[in-house]
Design a protein around this nucleic acid. Structure first.
Lengths: 146, 146
DNA sequence: CCAAATGGTTGTATCATGGAACCAATGGAG
DNA sequence: CTCCATTGGTTCCATGATACAACCATTTGG
C-alpha cells in the first residue's frame, strides 16, 4: 500500500470509529445517560488532575473560554464541582470536584471502561501498550500541528 | 500497566485526540472551510460507494433519518448531489454525486490527506509506522466489537 | 500610576441533532 | 383483492454545544 493510500485508509477508519462511537453527537455521551460529551470529558479531566482554572480546562478540552464558562455553570448546578477564587490571583476561578462529582466521574469512568473493554479485548494482549503509546503520540501531534 | 488502567489510558488518549483534532466542533471540519463534519463524511461515503438511499447513508453515518433528510437538502442545495427516485421502490430516494460533488469530494479528500500527513510529520519518523499499525488495530477492533 | 495583558462573563448567532407525529409506498396475511 | 403492519422520508419542535465579540475585573510591567 502506498503511503498516501495508507493515510487515506487510516482517515476513513478513524471516521468510522468516531461515528460508530457516537462522538459526533455532543449532547449525549455514549457512556452515560443525560451527560453531554463535553461534560463527561470535563469531569474526567477534573478527576485526574489537581484543581485547575477555567483557562486550563479550556486548553485541555480545546474549547473557548465562553463555552467553558457555561460548562462550568452546568457542572456547578449539578453540584459536581465547587468554584472558588484563587488566593494568588483573584481573577482565576478554581474548579474542584465535589464528592458527588467524584462519584459521577467514577461512574462515568466505569461505564466508559466497560464500553472500551470490548475494544481492547479485540486487540492482541501484547499490542495494547503499543496502541496506547501510539495514540498518545497521535494526540500530541494533533496538538502540535494546529 | 494493569488491564483496567490500560482501558482508561486508551480512553483518555482517544478523547485527547478527538478534541485536539477538533472533532468536537461539528460545524467546521478541520479539513475544509465552510463544510460541516457531517457533510464532509457524507461526501466521502457517497464518493466511495455506489448511489445509495438515505437510509443506507444514515446507517453509514450513524445519524437519524431526520438529520439525514436535512443533510441531503444541504448537499442538494450545494449541487453536490442529485436526488432521484428508485425505480423498484418509489419511497426510496437515490443519492448520486454530481461532477461538482465528485470534485468537492476529491478536494476534501486531498485536504484530509494533507492534514493527516501533517499529523504524521509531527510524529518522529521512526514511530510513524507504529502509530499507523496501532490505529489499524484500533479501527479493526472497533469493527469487531460492534 | 497608568497601560497592556490576562481570566472570565454575557449577549448574540449559528447550526447539528434526536424524537414524535405524520405521510406515502410496499408487501404480506387472510 | 383488501387490510394492516412495515419501511423510507419529511417536518415540527425542542435541546444544546459552540464561537465570536464586547465587556468587566484583576494583575503586571514599564
Amino acid at each position: 500500500m502506498e503511503p498516501m493510500e495508507e493515510v487515506g485508509a487510516l482517515t476513513a477508519e478513524i471516521v468510522r470509529f468516531v461515528r460508530a462511537f457516537g462522538l459526533h453527537r455532543p449532547d449525549d455521551t455514549p457512556c452515560g445517560a443525560g451527560v453531554s460529551v463535553s461534560e463527561a470529558h470535563a469531569l474526567a479531566v477534573l478527576a485526574t488532575a489537581p484543581p485547575m482554572t477555567q483557562g486550563k480546562l479550556a486548553a485541555e478540552l480545546c474549547l473557548t473560554k465562553s463555552t467553558i464558562s457555561r460548562l462550568v455553570d452546568q457542572l456547578d448546578e449539578r453540584r459536581w464541582i465547587t468554584v472558588g477564587t484563587s488566593d494568588t490571583d483573584r481573577r482565576c476561578r478554581i474548579l474542584s470536584l465535589t464528592p458527588v462529582g467524584q462519584a459521577a466521574a467514577a461512574e462515568l469512568g466505569t461505564r466508559r471502561r466497560e464500553r472500551m473493554a470490548g475494544l481492547l479485548d479485540a486487540i492482541p494482549t501484547d499490542r495494547r501498550a503499543d496502541v496506547i503509546d501510539a495514540l498518545a503520540l497521535l494526540s500530541e501531534a494533533a496538538r502540535a500541528s494546529t
